[in-house]
């Protein structure tokens, strides 16, 4: 198995406050890793740093993505080379239709990779197929990006975008929050469909429930800015039983 992502000894500050403190993590090709951890442990910071959000000061450490230095790549370059972040709070963009947005993104990525752009018909065909898989109505193509979407619709739209852009590394930042059981199942099935295509993933979650559907290969506990424990799904069960304090040994 080759390595998709390798983070070594990562220290990150936000507004001079140290959030990640020596985080190391390795994700193999096709591996689905879950990251669990208490509030404020740095989970979302990790997701933002991987996607290339500004405002994060990398103090130390390296991130290799498919053998390249991820930190040297711009946000859009990362996206074009297959990094996808499903946002915890998807952003509303009034005045831009969802289909325009996704088509612009897909074609920008294709252009960047030296591939031909999809024309309107090819795009629509693909979008219809993906929407059907996610049991989404096509009405949302013409609706402005995330505007007036319910919590569940927003998360489903994130997975729709992911499935349209077919990434190599997907980072799901609390994609389960705000979803009811039925929606959770559909979203998880959507993600699982992509796994058939050798997707690597980082699933950030607080709950066992999503992991029941996604069946991650590894589970990492992130606390106080670093990975303090790694294991298989039994770790999640243990966590459910004992809580973070029981595992980290903190009082």
């Amino acid at each position: 198995m080759s390595t998709t992502l390798e983070i070594k000894d990562l220290y990150v500050e936000v507004d001079s406050k140290e959030i990640l403190k020596g985080l190391s993590l390795k994700i193999e090709h096709g591996e689905m890793a879950a990251i669990m951890g208490p509030n404020g442990s740095g989970k979302s910071t990790l997701a933002s740093v991987l996607a290339g959000k500004e405002g994060y000061n990398i103090v130390n450490g390296t991130i290799k993505y498919l053998g390249n230095d991820l930190l040297k790549m711009s946000t859009e370059e990362r996206a074009s080379s297959g990094v996808f972040l499903a946002f915890q709070y998807p952003v509303e963009i009034p005045g831009v239709a969802t289909s325009t947005f996704v088509r612009t993104a897909l074609n920008a990525q294709r252009r960047n990779r030296g591939e031909d752009e999809l024309d309107a018909m090819e795009f629509l065909k693909l979008a219809r197929q993906k929407a059907k898989e996610l049991e989404m109505s096509e009405d949302f193509f013409q609706r402005a990006v995330n505007v007036g979407f319910s919590g569940g619709e927003k998360k489903r739209a994130e997975v729709f975008q992911m499935s349209m852009l077919s990434p190599t590394l997907a980072i799901l930042d609390e994609t389960d929050s705000g979803l009811d059981i039925d929606a959770l199942k559909i979203v998880a099935e959507g993600v699982n469909k992509l796994r058939d295509n050798k997707l690597s993933g980082i699933v950030i979650t607080h709950y066992q429930r999503l992991l029941d559907y996604l069946k991650p290969d590894t589970i990492h506990i992130l606390a106080d800015g670093k990975i303090i424990k790694t294991g298989d799904k039994s770790l999640a069960l243990l966590l459910e039983e004992k809580g973070y304090q029981g595992i980290t040994g903190a009082n």
């Binding site: 959000k53 946000t75 996206a79 074009s80 963009i93 947005f101 897909l106 920008a108 852009l165």
Partner: peptide
Amino acid sequence: LEQMFYLRSRGIPE
């Protein structure tokens, strides 16, 4: 900035 990041994170150049 949030909207800019959202678009760029999908591969749309600045």
